[in-house]
């Protein structure tokens, strides 16, 4: 009897999933856009899942710093972060170690083997989020207030915020990053979209390398050695490939067609 019920439940869930096709997806509120839930090990060891917010971090650091130098993967849960790694000073513990200072304040420590109730309540739950706090929401709006607006995603035009110097994400972390020569920029180019009359896409290497360096895109995401040689379609992007790796999850989402399809066709 129990088994049948389970099977039925699965069938029902399956049915409801197919029934969700063709309806609008829930639009994330701006403060939740770019939030990643990491839960490979937390729950099984009795901790609430970790919630990582990109908006908090990308105002201070470039994508490259975290995704290359610190070594985070580009999809939720891919890094398989362990508490032990954090304690040893890697991954989140690179900065969240109680020693690194930020704005003259020490950044709070990450996981620990032994801890007091007080530490649990004041520290652990900052990452291992028990419940959504409206505090973070308020913080977000206070932060976003003075930045250039955008309709989608975080509601913030991050590209403009950076180029106008309103935020100054750093690209190097002492003792972690390699001291490198200044970034040599690649030329920008236009990509033709295959539908006649659909505006062309202007891809700016310059605007992207500010955030991403080179190694985040090549060859992991874009392996084509000649531009235009690899065919990617919009459908693949919607599925989260190519540009869709970043655009939809952290960088502005793909519902903002015009921001990529910018160049009017003559």
């Amino acid at each position: 009897m129990k088994k049948i019920s389970c099977v039925l439940l699965f069938l029902l869930i399956g049915a409801s999933i197919t029934w969700a096709a063709g309806t609008k997806k829930r639009k994330l509120p701006p403060y939740e856009f770019g939030s990643v839930t990491i839960n490979n090990y937390s729950q099984q060891s009795g901790m609430p899942p970790v919630v990582f917010d990109h908006w908090i971090h990308r105002q201070y650091y470039t994508c490259r710093l975290c995704h290359v130098d610190v070594g985070f993967g580009m999809s939720a849960g891919a890094t398989k972060i362990r508490a032990a790694d954090n304690i040893k000073g890697y991954f989140c513990g690179t900065c969240h170690n109680g020693r690194t200072t930020h704005n003259k304040k020490a950044v709070f420590d990450s996981c620990a083997k032994e801890y007091s109730r007080e530490a649990y309540n004041s520290r652990c739950v900052k990452c291992h989020e028990i419940e959504k706090s409206t505090l973070k929401e308020d913080q977000f709006f206070k932060f976003a207030q003075n930045l250039p607006k955008e309709r989608f995603g975080n509601g913030i035009n991050w590209e403009k915020a950076e180029s106008e110097g309103l935020i100054k994400p750093i690209d190097q972390l002492e003792g972690v990053s390699i001291n490198k020569a200044k970034l040599k920029i690649q030329p920008d180019f236009a990509l033709k979209s295959k539908v006649e009359g659909m505006p062309e896409i202007i891809f700016s290497h310059k605007k992207h390398t500010v955030w991403n360096g080179c190694e985040l895109c090549h060859p992991e995401i874009f392996m084509g050695i000649k531009r235009g040689a690899t065919k990617y379609t919009m459908i693949e992007l919607f599925e989260g490939k190519y540009c869709g790796v970043c655009h939809d999850k952290v960088a502005f989402p793909q519902s903002d067609c015009q921001r990529c399809h910018t160049k009017a066709v003559q």
């Binding site: 390699i178 001291n179 490198k180 020569a181 970034l183 040599k184 690649q186 360096g213 080179c214």
Partner: peptide, 11 residues
């Protein structure tokens, strides 16, 4: 550090 320092100007 030395080996991977050239990613910024690899071209």
């Amino acid at each position: 550090d030395e080996t991977c320092a050239r990613t910024t100007d690899a071209m």
